[in-house]
């Protein structure tokens, strides 16, 4: 438990970084740089939202793509009919609502059942949208008049900052202690007075808000909505890889994981996308087998051990 005032530091830091990123980077980077930065920042937003449920409670969701896709779908359906900002907010809240609806029944099962169920629900939603679109005679929709890349980038930065603060507050508040207790032992958590169902469903709902907006911004970038692409299970799996690579017990790990994999992708994707994915796979296998707490978690542990050794005379019980 940390005092609430403890949040002031990281939140202020996030604000400063976000402002710098939003207003300094575009001046320095060209179009290509902005595209890369937008991609990176959107991934950061996604991983930060994912840990709120899956990192903290251990209910690993393979369904994040459903929230991205649902947000994108609502955004394109309302495109032109409502103000831009309203569409973004509606995208977020629709995904949050979807999570609240499916969360109740889904979160009754645990472990591998939950993982597979979320994948199934995401695929179900995907095919539902595909079928709806097909019955309307649509196989993809275009948007005209989307914002400039720089503006999308700035919105993405703002969104990532919000996602980070949400993940941070969720981790170090009373809520977060409850979530982690659920992960550690759900039965004991319930017997210790934690409203397990509320917390889980609440975390699921919270974690779905940001991906809805990410979905909206993603289609703004391309000006195109295509369900197979927006609801891709690959997206969910990549989020998991980033979080696992970095470590998913706090907001810092996923941040590092997203940075690491995006830079890797940047170095390799153009020349050899398959090679990139092969390396991604090797990294994932390596991290899970050799450093299960992720890059960040392992680094913290190493540092702690070293500093403990550095103080002579101090005994550890």
């Amino acid at each position: 438990m940390k005092a609430p005032s403890w949040f002031a530091g990281p939140i202020g830091g996030a604000l400063v970084v976000a402002l710098l990123a939003a207003f300094v980077v575009p001046g320095m980077a060209g179009d290509y740089g902005i595209e890369f930065a937008t991609t990176l920042v959107l991934w950061i937003a996604l991983v930060q939202s994912w840990v709120i449920l899956s990192g903290y409670t251990g209910y690993v969701s393979l369904g994040h793509a459903a929230f991205v896709g649902a947000g994108a779908y609502v955004f394109i359906l309302t495109w032109g009919a409502v103000p831009f900002w309203f569409g973004l907010v509606a995208a977020g809240f629709t995904s949050g609502l979807l999570a609240l609806i499916v969360g109740g029944p889904c979160l009754r099962v645990r472990g591998p059942y939950f993982v597979i169920l979320t994948l199934g629900v995401a695929e179900f939603v995907k095919y539902a949208v595909i079928n709806i679109e097909a019955s309307l005679g649509k196989f993809g929709r275009l948007m005209i008049g989307t914002p400039e890349p720089v503006d999308i980038y700035r919105m993405a930065v703002g969104l990532a900052a919000i996602a980070f603060v949400m993940a941070l507050v969720a981790r170090y508040s009373r809520f977060g202690v409850g979530l982690r207790a659920i992960r550690e032992n759900e039965v004991a958590a319930e017997m210790t007075g934690i409203r397990v169902r509320w917390l889980k469903v609440g975390a699921f709902g919270l974690s779905a808000l940001v991906p809805g907006v990410v979905g909206a911004l993603m289609i703004c970038r391309t000006g195109y909505f295509e369900p197979l692409q927006m609801f891709s299970p690959q997206l969910s799996l990549t989020i998991i890889t980033m979080c696992v690579a970095g470590g998913s017990d706090n907001p810092w790990g996923p941040l590092i994981g997203a940075l690491f994999l995006n830079i890797l992708s940047e170095l390799l994707w153009d020349s050899a996308p398959e090679l990139y994915t092969v390396i991604l796979g090797v990294v994932l296998v390596f991290v899970v087998l050799r450093m299960p707490e992720g890059i960040y978690g392992t680094a913290v542990k190493r540092l702690a051990r070293r500093s403990r050794k550095a103080v002579p005379g101090e005994t550890t019980p």
Partner: peptide, 11 residues
């Protein structure tokens, strides 16, 4: 194992 196999699958 899910994650390891996901990695293997990508490879």
């Amino acid at each position: 194992s899910l994650l390891v196999f996901f990695g293997i699958s990508m490879v």
